Amino acid sequence: MKSFSLPSPGAELVLIERDVPEPGPGQVLVRLRGWAVNARDLMILRGFYPKPVKPGVVPLSDGAGEVVAVGDGVREWSPGDRVAATYFPKWLSGPGTPEKTADDLAGTLDGVLAEYAVFAEEALVAVPAHLDFAEAATLPSAGVTAWRAIVEEGRVAPGQTVLTLGSGGLSTFALQFAVLGGARVIATSSSDEKLARLRALGASETINYATTPEWGVAVADLTGGGVDHVVDVGGGGTIGQSMLAARSGGHVSVAGVLTHEGAADPVLVLVKQLTLRGLTNASRETFQAMNRAIGHSGLRPVIDRRFAFEEIADALKHVESGTHVGKVVLESA
């Protein structure tokens, strides 16, 4: 089988031939058919990721495919089942703990950028039947984190207001989930073309942050005091404006750190009595709940471009360009 590996952080990916692995007791062999690229993958590949990375790691955390064989004792899966791998294989339910989140795909453990991979029985979830494999591959990171921000932690209710930042996969999922829940969504981008696409996805209002650098104040003015929920993916460069955009008593989910520069006044947290919550993925139980909702609603992830498995370098360059709306994926025949 074909598999990619990263010899060391900052090195070029290497395509190698390996034997197809055999599933041991309690394990499942999956033929991977779809993969999704995340900003985290770029950080790992460029050598900027702050957490441990296994030497020679197989990259990418997000993949989906079909079960081809199971080891002794496996009861939940059978050949032909359509599945996706969980980002944290040991986080099955409940709050995240250091023990549950110690190992992650494409970090301490090999990821999914291979034609076949073996997973523990409990480290897989069934994917919605209406999605193809590339669409299903967008769910483990961006989808699950957005669901946790909007539904599990945010508890967004009909009629509430949500602010999403940018047009990446996590932000487009957050927009879709908020609209599905009956919320009014305000979205930002530096591109008017992207803003038009976000409106087509259901955003009620949009703001170009390049032409409106004080977009936090603009959002507060637009909503008569601020939004109920902000899904922040920018980190240091955006958190200050996000806090300005939130209403008194509002909720800010910090779901990504694309920039470290910038400063935020902690006085705003006190004065506005804000809740700031950092989110890094979620449990298998949460993943399953999200998939049930996606299956029931028929929601489809936003796919910007599709590449072949061997075109991973081009896919990474496309993500790095920042021109995408939604997810960039790989797929095999």
Results as ranks from 00 to 15, higher is better:
Ser5Asp: 05
Leu6Ser: 06
Leu6Asn: 05
Pro7His: 08
Pro9Leu: 11
Glu12His: 14
Leu13Gln: 09
Leu15Phe: 13
Ile16Arg: 14
Asp19Trp: 06
Asp19Val: 03
Glu22Lys: 08
Gly24Ser: 04
Pro25Thr: 07
Leu29Phe: 10
Val37Trp: 00
Asp41Glu: 08
Leu42Lys: 07
Met43Glu: 12
Leu45Gln: 07
Lys51Cys: 02
Pro52Trp: 15
Gly56Gln: 08
Val57Arg: 13
Gly73Leu: 03
Val74Thr: 07
Arg75His: 04
Gly80Asn: 04
Asp81Ile: 03
Val83His: 05
Thr86Cys: 15
Thr86Asp: 08
Tyr87Gly: 01
Tyr87Met: 03
Gly94Tyr: 13
Gly107Cys: 14
Gly107Gln: 14
Gly107Asp: 12
Ala114Tyr: 10
Glu115Lys: 09
Tyr116Leu: 15
Glu121Lys: 08
Ala126Lys: 13
Val127Cys: 10
Ala136Trp: 00
Thr138Tyr: 05
Leu139Ala: 01
Val151Trp: 06
Gly154Val: 04
Arg155Val: 13
Ala157Leu: 09
Pro158Thr: 02
Pro158Tyr: 03
Gly159Pro: 13
Gly159Ile: 10
Gly159Asp: 11
Leu165Tyr: 07
Gly169Ala: 08
Leu170Arg: 10
Thr172Ile: 13
Thr172His: 06
Ala174Trp: 12
Gln176Leu: 11
Ala178Asn: 08
Gly182Met: 07
Arg184Val: 13
Ile186Glu: 04
Leu195Val: 04
Ala196Asn: 06
Arg197Val: 07
Leu198Val: 00
Gly202Glu: 01
Ala203Asp: 08
Ser204Met: 02
Thr206Ile: 15
Thr206Cys: 14
Thr211Asn: 03
Thr212Glu: 12
Trp215Asp: 06
Val217Glu: 11
Val217Lys: 11
Asp221Pro: 00
Thr223Trp: 09
Gly225Asp: 08
Val233Gly: 07
Gly234Cys: 08
Gly236Thr: 05
Thr238Arg: 12
Thr238Glu: 12
Gln241Trp: 06
Ser242Trp: 04
Met243Phe: 11
Ala246Glu: 10
Arg247Trp: 01
Ser248His: 14
Ser253Phe: 04
Thr259Ala: 15
Glu261Cys: 01
Ala263Val: 12
Asp265Thr: 06
Val267Cys: 00
Lys272Cys: 00
Gln273Cys: 02
Leu274Cys: 12
Asn281Val: 13
Ala289His: 11
Met290Asp: 06
Asn291Leu: 06
Ala293Tyr: 02
Ser297His: 01
Pro301Lys: 01
Val302Gly: 00
Val302Met: 01
Ile303Cys: 02
Asp304Trp: 01
Asp304Pro: 00
Asp304Met: 00
Arg306Ile: 05
Phe309Asp: 03
Glu310Ile: 00
His318Ile: 01
Glu320Asp: 15
